[in-house]
Amino acid sequence: MKKISINLNGETRVVHVEPEETLLSVLRNKLGITSPKCGCDRGDCGACAVLLNGRSVRSCLVLAMETDSQKIVTVEGISQNGLTQVQNAMLDMNAFQCGYCAPGIIISATELLENNSNPNLEEIKEALSGNLCRCSGYLPILEAVKESVKEDSHE
């Protein structure tokens, strides 16, 4: 058991972890962060995505110890001062159905929009293609990301 310190959603959190614990498991079981989900446990589905130092990663494939002194952002952090523009577009357009994949997709969309304020459809598809969704048929989600960018350009 080792004590690690992470910057989680802007707050310093200290937690004791074993070497074999994944970041996903520590977030969910020791830090009360449940938006990242365990959909496949092998990096295929993207439901466990979080931002690690600004980059989206599969938290099921990261050992918690690797994140000592690193910065982690989850959808709880993204939403803490109200929904972002892309989240609002997703809400208004009923982009999600069961919502289980939503946190992962919001992480991917957030990463995309941080690096590219006006992505085209191909770039949006590329950014979201690591997140599986079984309900939506993706088109409403892609549409919502596009829509949020459009609003941006009007400002």
Binding site: R28, T34, S35, K37, C38, T74, V75, E76, S79, L83, Q87, M90, L91, N94, F96, G99, Y100, A102, P103, I106
Partner: peptide, 16 residues
Amino acid sequence: IDGKEKISGATKYTED
């Protein structure tokens, strides 16, 4: 009506 809870990551599924 459950849109906001799903989009903010607040929804608690069985495992959550």
